[in-house]
Write a protein that binds this DNA or RNA. Structure first.
Lengths: 356, 356
DNA sequence: GTGAGTGATGTTTTCGGAAACATTTTGTTT
DNA sequence: AAACAAAATGTTTCCGAAAACATCACTCAC
């Protein structure tokens, strides 16, 4: 029915095995034979059958990715990095999105990948230490790389420098003389979120005059950032600074603050985490900790593929650095007196309105 | 090496074909045999080999999706709808992301899907009429469904009601007495974008006192919305209203306007398109046209699968309705005099700053 | 009681490649 | 030119499931 190997072999007047050698780029093929075969392939529009390849081949040349919701900036960018690096290294990718955080769904996804005889799997979902170690044990022969998972000697992983990044954020806030902190964190099950909170706390507890007003759990999305902040304000919380676990949540935070007529950064400073494409266009533009998601994805692939060649003596860990991006939602101390500019701007706006 | 069919058959003391019948849910299997086989499968941890299935089976039971960048809200949500509906109908999905708009990449992706013997393919990328028709011809036997592609009798497609939605947006603006319009559109190659612009123009040309100041092309992302608006303002353009092709671009538009001290919605009204999760948290919350992306994805799958059973006499088209979401970036006429409230707020903010 | 129909199961063949192994051709060395 | 290595190509077998076909046991009708 479909064009196959044999058709190509017949047309090029060679054996099927030679065709196979050409399609797989074997070096031991004469140049003119190769050309002849390639011409036949092109002429017939031959497309190899993945099923047959998978069945006949020892290795699948595929990298599996199990990830959370791709709407999230981080997950999506990591996936992009993985796709990019995989294709660079000559691997295909098979994607499995696990929306809910349930181990059943994860094992379903893993079985599906195993059914494709995929031997490299990158997991970018929140997992605790036990879960990640269990998976490695449960699927022997599969090379796992985890993203942002609690450190474990048994498990290969790539991390953003969550702790370091969060330290930078907290120290930056301390420098600007903020005293009353509100935390809006990512989901508690996320190791990345946990590390960031820990870093914030570690920095702040060095300063006895600083108070942590509250710590509220969000789901990375703007909606939750808004809801938590709104609740806190309704409860009469008073804070001069919000540490937020993601830029998207920070968007919601900014909105809630603006509804309560709290000016950012004068009355309340806000810092995010991620540096999404949008965050530079928030009102005001968001100061945040940049993560290099693309590199995280790329390194995860490289790590996975290298595992094959190396001794599995020890698990590899790799940390991708973060960077603070200074924009307009945190006001450095020395600028505090600069409110005049702000006031002048507000008055100008008022005048313009009057002029209409 | 791996657990296979034969192992299961041996353990359950049946033939391999019986195992096959059980795994495929054939009705002609005795109840106790079925149980025996299932027990053996479970005991051995048997996972079917996708390659062998693909090779041995006539149909692949898979739906392929070729989509643009999943960072975009629309693409990501459509993909979610497709995954959901596919698994509901018992199909797997294979995803292929095409970042650049290049037909070569598209045919690469298509060939990859064809290599998996996938017979249902949904394309969610900007394509012109010729391109879509060409693909249908070039890949006979494959059931294509296109998303937001120019209407063609030869091509099955699912659309958002782009034209209707854009009409609503334009009429809403007209109602609020806006006179000088700026368009920030999506990429020109996008049929959806084109339709929206056409709708805007069709509505506005009924009103001779309305002027279209400029029409600028963006890439759906905030950055481009910001850049285009910024450029327009630097060029000295004067407008009281911006029609924007996507919410993300609208975010950039809002930022640019705020940098020029133009108040939204008093001096300039802005309306977006999409209703992304974030848009409710913009400053001010964005008035926009909501698209039901999830349904678009779901309907695309249903359409594809139904094509198999029906005569291919005529292409099917389906339109998913849009809805206007009124928030705060468009000011209805009767509220224009309400500026006092706004001014009072600004003055209050100024006072607060002075009090610090 | 015999033949037809039917449900449950077994046997054989097939899918399309790739690995393992065998063979031929070419090139190099002495 | 003989000897042998290396490169190029061919032949056979196998991967793991599903389809096609074959068989068998049983029920029911006449």
């Amino acid at each position: 029915m479909n064009v196959t190997f044999k058709d190509v072999a017949k047309l090029a007047n060679v054996s099927t095995q030679t065709v196979s050698r050409v399609t797989n780029g074997s070096p031991n093929v004469a140049e003119d034979t190769r050309e002849k075969v390639n011409a036949a392939i092109k002429q017939l529009g031959y497309i190899p059958n993945k099923g047959a390849q998978l069945l006949g081949r020892a290795k699948s040349k595929m990298i599996g990715l199990v990830t959370g919701e791709l709407l999230l900036h981080g997950a999506s960018m990591v996936a992009n990095g993985i796709r990019k690096q995989s294709s660079e290294l000559g691997y295909g990718t098979s994607l499995s999105v696990v929306s809910e955080h349930s181990m059943d769904k994860v094992t379903d996804a893993l079985n599906d990948l195993k059914a494709q005889r995929i031997e490299f799997i990158i997991l970018n979902i929140p997992l605790n230490k036990e879960e990640s170690e269990m998976l490695v044990e449960q699927y022997p022969g599969i090379h796992f790389v985890f993203v942002d998972v609690p450190p474990s000697a048994k498990v290969n992983a790539v991390y953003a420098a969550n702790y370091d990044g969060a330290v930078k954020a907290a120290e930056y806030m301390v420098l600007t003389q903020r005293k009353r902190f509100l935390f809006i964190t990512g989901p508690n099950e996320s190791s990345a979120s946990e590390l960031r909170v820990q870093a914030w706390k570690d920095v702040l507890k060095k300063h006895p005059d600083i108070e942590i007003i509250d710590q509220l759990e969000g789901d990375w999305q703007a909606r939750s950032g808004y809801a938590r902040t709104h609740e806190a304000l309704c409860d009469g919380c008073s804070f001069d600074c919000v540490m937020v676990g993601s830029d998207q949540m920070a968007l919601g935070v900014l909105r809630a603050l603006s509804e309560f007529n709290l000016s950012v950064p004068q009355q309340v400073s806000v810092i995010g985490f991620d540096d999404t494409f949008d965050s530079a266009y928030f009102y005001p533009p968001l100061t945040t900790i940049k993560q290099d998601f693309l590199t995280i994805g790329k390194r995860a692939v490289s790590l996975a593929v290298n595992m094959e060649n190396q001794d599995v003596t020890e698990a590899h860990h790799e940390t991708i650095k973060t960077e603070i991006i200074e924009r307009k939602t945190v006001q450095p101390y020395q600028q505090t007196q600069n409110n005049k500019t702000q006031i002048r701007e507000l008055l100008k706006q008022a005048e313009q309105l009057l002029g209409e």
